[in-house]
Design a protein around this nucleic acid. Structure first.
Lengths: 191, 191
DNA sequence: ACTCGATACATCGGTTCCGATGTATTGTCG
DNA sequence: CGACAATACATCGGAACCGATGTATCGAGT
């Protein structure tokens, strides 16, 4: 686990999209070409937010430019020649960094959070994994209110709007389910 | 409910962010100045995804340019002069249009969906509201898989990765809770 | 022979997003 | 009296996103 090169530290920035995290996460297991990568990312998050090719290929280029992955051109087995992508050592370090210190948005936005969870096993260090789960736990434990009367948060029962009541109902049910899972998983990580 | 002006139809585009929807939604009730608008949007979605001022003000400008809202400068009651924003008739039509025909992403992405729900009462037409809920119902009813072994979707029990298992567990619990609410609400809208 | 769909990659241009930064005023706390 | 937070708006530049479009190959159907 050496230090990051200047090229790499230059890449450490806020708001590094969840797309990049997914690319790094999938390539951590095994080298893949772009098309296959796209299929896997689509399976993971595509039902919520489809991955445009015109978003994926520039993202791959960014990561290549940052020295996190390399391309090897292979003659096409089926069709056009493939660019097989594999992570560099720096790419592997960077993935672990992004998993260890996720951006605040990675914690609060469910889509991003699921992407973190999908690859968290790569951290391979139970205390570090537990620390990430605890950040999510802290976020879910502070009461989130959606609607206010002035400064006072409104409870579901106080809303006559059935749709806004739905937002609160669903958010609470979701939160309860995840809290249960988080506490159980933390227990088994700590124990 | 007249036809939309050319300026307005030009604005009908894909991927019209949920920020614009929130602006239109809040102003539908009452005129507000930008700063107050920001506080309300922050309460609604800020815990997941904070609203940068540098995103809000350009969005207001876009909507103004499109003829959906107008600004009136008021001498500042407390501090700097305020720009009180109010929807035009076209703005009101456009909000109802966006609520009646939400973008596919507004249905699939929970953050966007919650924004739709937060303002769906403005539609003021039970069958139209029910139609929107049914789109979400259809989306949640088709089984979503996150992880695959080749083409075969993996069930929670098949994963040894506790974090990926968590993704499936949480997604299912969330889905069940929302389906319950959707079915109950549809029944009361239809009945 | 022709079309079509899947594989595989790429660019262009427009929109949106957002961190950093700047301006100005008022009220509050020490 | 000075620092500081809150109110209130705005711009700039860079990054990210994405629809449209283009290129090319291969196999299956018709």
């Amino acid at each position: 686990m050496g230090a990051l090169s200047p090229r790499c530290t230059a890449l450490i920035r806020q708001n590094a999209g969840m797309l990049e995290l997914a690319i790094l996460g999938f390539l951590y297991d095994t080298p893949l070409h772009g098309y296959e990568l796209r299929k896997r990312i689509s399976a993971l998050t595509g039902h919520v937010r489809p991955v445009a090719e015109s978003t994926l290929y520039p993202a791959i280029k960014r990561l290549e430019k940052a020295g996190l992955l390399v391309r090897a051109t292979e003659p096409g087995a089926v069709a056009a020649p493939r660019h097989v992508l594999s992570l560099t050592d720096e790419g592997r370090i960077e993935l672990r960094r992004r998993l260890t210190e996720p951006d605040e948005r990675d914690i609060t936005d469910e889509n991003r959070w699921f992407t973190v969870l999908a690859f968290l096993r790569h951290l391979d260090d139970a205390p570090a994994q537990a620390a990430v789960l605890r950040r999510r736990l802290a976020f879910l434990e502070e009461p989130a209110s959606f609607f206010y009367d002035g400064d006072r948060a409104l409870r579901a029962e106080e809303l006559d709007d059935p749709f806004r009541r739905g937002v609160l109902t669903i958010a609470r049910a979701t939160s309860r389910a995840e809290l249960r899972w988080l506490r159980a998983t933390l227990e088994s990580l700590d124990g």
